[in-house]
Amino acid sequence: MRNPLITVMAAAALLLSACGTPAAGTDPTPSTPGGQDGAAIHFAAAASLTDVAPELTRAYAEETGDTTRIDINLGASSKLVQQANSGQQPDVLITADTQAPEALEDPTAFEPPIDLVSNTLVLAVPATSKITAADQLPEAGAVALCAPAVPCGRAANTYLDHQGFSLNTVSEEDNVRAVLTKVTAGQVDAGFVYATDVAAAGDQVRAIDLTGLDANIYPLLVATDAAEPAQDFARWLQGDAAMKLLNDAGFSAP
């Protein structure tokens, strides 16, 4: 004969399981990204900050003790602005020139930009290249540069127009790091990148200065509705500790 007590206990266990009672050894509290309030800082930055952006976020956490997670989104400035226009607005945005943010459909979504750092466009060539000056560009077989809508592409085309150079074969890339990859892989004879990119490539490439070209100013934009952790991070980016890391990476004062 079945024990009535056992039957009742089994039915109760089934009922509790159906109601979603967690199994033994599991955490009933859903995991929450970011700090104690579950928030995360969405940090979008131009591709030329690929190496230094993670260093900045680590240094910020170590110096301030802020445990808020910082999600880094790196890419061409034009793409980052397009993402903001499509509803993927970051809390903190750094573009590679002051023209990129002009394409924001809602400029009021961000506080007025602050000039953070500057970067200089250079011509990168493989370390073993025979090219020693920019005026040898017309003789080069293939040259890589960013697409015209990207800050590094705008700067490169401005330089080429001023010099009146006509290139043999042009490879247009989505962002400056794609250009650098073409150069380091030996797929092109030269590429227009930033001084910081050449520094990141080490002894794989050489930089050739481009005369008569103004440096790119990198503006820092903070969303008007950014939470306090994001605002704190943006203020820290303007401080001495962040500036040292940016200077070490090859960026200069604006």
Rank of each mutant, 00 (worst) to 15 (best):
Ala59Asn: 06
Ala59Gln: 13
Ala59Leu: 11
Glu63His: 08
Gly65Tyr: 03
Asp66Cys: 01
Asp66Leu: 00
Thr68Asn: 10
Thr68Met: 01
Ile70Thr: 09
Asp71Lys: 09
Asp71Ile: 10
Asp71Ser: 07
Ile72Thr: 10
Asn73Gly: 04
Leu74Glu: 00
Gly75Leu: 01
Ser78Tyr: 06
Gln82Cys: 02
Gln83Leu: 15
Gly87Thr: 11
Gly87Leu: 13
Asp91His: 06
Leu93Ile: 10
Leu93His: 09
Ile94Met: 03
Gln99Met: 00
Gln99Leu: 01
Ala100Met: 06
Glu102Val: 09
Leu104Ala: 02
Asp106Trp: 05
Pro107Cys: 08
Ala109Leu: 02
Phe110Glu: 13
Pro112Thr: 13
Pro113Ile: 10
Ile114His: 14
Val117Ile: 15
Val117Cys: 02
Leu121Pro: 06
Ala124Phe: 12
Val125Gly: 12
Val125Lys: 11
Pro126Cys: 09
Pro126Gly: 04
Thr128Ala: 12
Lys130Trp: 06
Ala134Phe: 06
Asp135His: 03
Pro138Phe: 10
Glu139Ile: 10
Val143Asp: 08
Cys146Asn: 14
Pro148Cys: 01
Pro151Thr: 07
Cys152Asn: 07
Arg154Gln: 08
Ala155Cys: 06
Ala156Ser: 15
Leu160Arg: 03
Asp161Glu: 11
Asp161Pro: 02
His162Gly: 05
Gln163Thr: 01
Gln163Tyr: 00
Phe165His: 03
Ser171Ile: 15
Asn175Glu: 01
Thr181Gly: 03
Ala185Met: 08
Gly186Arg: 06
